[in-house]
Structure formats: C-alpha cells, structure tokens
C-alpha cells in the first residue's frame, strides 16, 4: 500500500492511525462476540455481548471517520471485508483466541485499562469530531474497565482453580502487552499536530493500575521486561487472525452485493 519514497502527509497518517485504532476494536469485538450464547452465566453472556457491541460500535465510527479523512469515496465496510490479514494493523493481543473465561477477562482488563488512558488523551485532540468520538468511547470504556477489573479480583482471589487459571492467562498474554505502547512515525507526526495520544505519558499510570489490581487479586505480576512480540502495526500477525477474517469476511466476499434489506 505505502511506498517508502513518498513522504507521509498528515492526512495519510491520520487515516492510518484511525484504521489502527479501529482494527484493534473490531478484532477484539469480534473475538468477544464469540462468547454470545457461551457465557459462564447469563449475566456475563449479556455483558460480554454488550461490550462486544461497544467495541464494534467504536470501530464503526473510527472507520467511518477514516474513510472521510481518506476522501476517496470508499465505504467503511470496504476496509472491514476486503482487506487481508497483512493489511490489518490490529495488535496481536486483540486477535488471540478467546480462550477460557479467565483469559478473556485478563485481556479485557489489560486492554480496557489501556483504552481508558488512551481515550482520556484523545479526548483533547485538536479535531472536534475525533475528540468527540474519544469522549464518547471513554464513557463506555469506564464500564468495561470496572467490569473486567471486578472479575480479575473475583477470579484471582476466588477458588484455587479460578486463581490458577487467571494467573496462567496473565502469564500467557504477557508477551503481547508490550506492543500496546508501540509508537512509530505515524504517532510522531500526529503528536506534533495534536492529533494523537502519546502512550509514553500514561505508561506508568497503566502499569500502576495493573500492578495494584493484580496484587489486590492475590496474583503475581509477570515481568514487564520479559520478551515482548512486535510487528503488528506492520501487518505481522499470529496464525489466528487469518482464521478469524475467513469467518468474518466470507459471506461478504462470496456475495458482495448481499444486503440485509
């Protein structure tokens, strides 16, 4: 898509940034939707489906704004259904299989905590529509954070089985959390224009939230300095994304003109 010889414009960077944010939320929302009908209890089934809808809603508004910024007359669905895995820029943490309830909760907590601080910063970007979206998403993310945090406490400080499972989940997912704070020339250009967050500014706040919560849940905090995977923003993914996309895209690709109406 991009050629290395052309210089990056503000418009290109903002489009790419919005698509990255949207991809994270679409893929995580899709993963969460897999719980619909499979939640451990009815209330949780409903809660996870609701949160999934929120994420897909966030993605929809971000994609919609992205195609407006791009200004090529593209429909947002085009980005969703007609890009292949290497063109998706979501972080790998969002595409991992849903695992057991503990794994889902661990991921939701880490991601919701990150999103909380991210959206707080994005609420002040110098772009009325983008800032307005961030303020709206922030309100919803607070509920996601409250929900997942309470489950981390309950599972961590619960039975031996729940403790072991959520501890294993945090251990397994840890290698994927480093990427949450990855930044490159896209962010740098936009930060200069007051159009992007700078995750360096809230990294310590996020860590504090995570450490506090895990300790309260009687869980061990894995090592932040361990090996962390990279490359998602360049389109490098785990094998899981292709399978997810195959399921998500197959109807639209098989019947491109299909319509609900």
């Amino acid at each position: 898509m991009s050629t290395e010889t052309t210089t990056l414009t503000k418009q290109d960077a903002l489009f790419e940034y919005l698509v990255r944010l949207a991809d994270d939320r679409l893929i995580l929302g899709h993963r969460l939707s897999e719980w619909c009908g499979h939640g451990p209890i009815l209330e949780e089934d409903i809660a996870l489906a609701n949160i999934s809808l929120d994420y897909i809603g966030h993605a929809a508004s971000l994609y919609e704004y992205a195609v407006e910024v791009e200004d090529k007359g593209r429909h947002r669905d085009n980005l969703v259904y007609f890009r292949n895995d290497v063109e998706y820029k979501n972080l790998k943490i969002t595409e991992l299989p849903k695992g057991d309830f503990g794994f889902t909760i661990a991921r939701q907590f880490l991601f919701a905590g990150f999103s909380y601080f991210l959206y707080k910063q994005l609420s002040d970007v110098e772009d009325e529509q983008f800032a307005g979206m961030a303020q709206k998403h922030l309100k919803e993310v607070k509920y996601h954070l409250r929900h997942s945090r309470e489950w981390v406490l309950r599972l961590g400080d619960g039975t031996d089985e729940s403790h072991e499972r959520i501890q294993n989940s945090f251990n397994d997912i840890w290698t994927y959390v480093g990427e949450l704070f990855h930044q490159d020339e896209i962010e740098e250009l936009l930060q200069g224009e007051k159009l992007a967050a700078d995750s360096e500014n809230f990294k310590s706040d996020w860590k504090e939230l995570v450490v506090d919560t895990l300790e309260e849940a009687t869980l061990e905090v894995p090592d932040f300095d361990q090996f962390m995977v990279e490359g998602s923003r360049d389109g490098l993914h785990t094998e899981h994304l292709g399978h997810l996309l195959a399921e998500m895209q197959h109807l639209r690709r098989s019947y491109p003109d299909a319509d609900w109406e």
């Binding site: 209330e43 409903i46 809660a47 609701n50 809808l53 919803e140 509920y143 409250r146 929900h147």
Partner: peptide
C-alpha cells in the same frame, strides 16, 4: 447490583 450490563447497552441489572 447484579450486572453492569442489562438487556440493552444503556441499562444495568
């Protein structure tokens, strides 16, 4: 409070 999420996104149970 039973759940922060209810039958619709805007309601808790």
């Amino acid at each position: 409070l039973q759940s922060e999420f209810g039958s619709t996104a805007c309601k808790a149970q």
